[in-house]
Structures are given as structure tokens and as C-alpha cells.
Amino acid sequence: MGDNMKPVALLLLMLNFCMYTIIAIIGGWSVNFAIDHGFIIGPGLRLPAHFHPIFFPIGNFATGFFVLFALLAAVVGAASCVVGFMHLRFWNYHSMQPAASLGLVAWALTVLAMGLACQEISFDRRNAKLGTMEAFTIVLSVTQLVYVLAIHGGSHEPVPVERHNALR
């Protein structure tokens, strides 16, 4: 395989892993904050007029959806980085398949979270930590795609064909 793409993939993989970890940390803080400071409804009380199921006291109406999808993308992205490190260790056709497919799933979830981040940016009232999370999500949507392309760029060998003794 193209060994010249291996350092590029390693650099992007380490960058993506750090950014996915930061997104997971900020997203976990945000969910914890929402649980601690969200609506508390006692017996005999009614829900507020503008209540929706994913309520976050920080941010705006898009914040809850953004945080949940960003957390999901961060967990799947971190898992794709672990599989990517295993692919870089072996760097063959058989290890590329799980790394590329999980990388594409992580990229798709990251692009979905990026769309929600752009929606949240278009509204007002944002927290500084959420702004960091939005910026990392937008950057990750590009770097994860480049990482998946770097993995595929390193596969210029023909596909190995296994011969089974039972077929002879």
C-alpha cells in the first residue's frame, strides 16, 4: 500500500482523536449542566408553555439537538480513531476495511452535528464552551473526511484473493 500516506493518516488521526475527546468532554459537561439546572416539575405543576423535551438552560432551542448529536458523533469518532490506530499498525487491505467504514460513519454523524452547529450559530444566545464545541465540530467535518480519503489513498495495491484448499 502507499506508505507515503501513512504519516498523513497518523497526523489526522491524532488530531481527530484529540478534537473528538474535547467535544465529548464539553458535551458531557453540557448534558450534566442541563440535568442539574433544567426544569424541575413537582406534583400538581404544569409544564411551561415553551417546553420541549430536549431543554438546555444554556444556548437556544437548537442546543439540545446539537449537543446530543455531537456527543454521538464524538463517541463514534473516538471509536473510529481506535480502529484507525489498529489499521496504521498493520496497514494492509484487511485492516483498512473496518477503519474506512467506521470512519465514514463517524464523518456522517459529524456532518449531521455540524449542520446543527450551523443552525445554532444562526441563532443568538450561545455559551463560550458551546462555541468551542461548534468550532471543533465544523473543523472535524473536514479533517475526518480528509482522514478517510488518506486511508483510501494508501490503497493502490490489487485486492488480495484468498485461495481455499477445498476448491481445488
Rank of each mutant, 00 (worst) to 15 (best):
G44T: 01
V8G: 01
G38S: 03
G154N: 07
F56T: 12
L109T: 04
Q119L: 13
N165K: 12
I121L: 13
M96S: 12
Y20E: 08
I58A: 11
V142S: 11
M133P: 05
I26A: 02
T110E: 06
T143N: 07
N60S: 15
G84F: 02
F55R: 00
D36N: 14
L145C: 10
T132G: 15
V76E: 07
L88V: 04
L109I: 04
T63Y: 10
L72Q: 06
M133C: 14
A106Y: 07
E120M: 13
S95A: 15
A49K: 13
T132L: 15
A49Y: 04
E162K: 11
V111F: 12
A34P: 03
M19D: 06
I26T: 05
S155N: 15
M86F: 08
G27H: 10
V67Q: 04
E162V: 12
V67M: 07
P43L: 05
L102I: 15
I23L: 07
N127E: 13
H52F: 10
A74V: 11
I26M: 04
F136S: 09
L167K: 01
E120S: 15
P57M: 03
N4S: 15
F17A: 11
V82N: 02
W91G: 10
T63Q: 08
C18F: 08
A166R: 01
V142A: 15
S30L: 05
E120T: 12
R89G: 12
L13G: 11
E162G: 03
E134Y: 06
P57L: 01
F39G: 02
D3G: 11
S101R: 14
H52R: 12
L104W: 12
N127T: 15
W29P: 00
N127G: 06
H37C: 01
C118Y: 09
H52T: 14
F85P: 02
V75E: 05
H94K: 09
T63F: 09
T21A: 15
F85Q: 06
G103Y: 09
T110P: 02
R89T: 11
A9L: 02
R163H: 15
F90V: 14
L45Q: 13
Y20I: 00
A106I: 11
A79R: 00
F61W: 07
R46D: 13
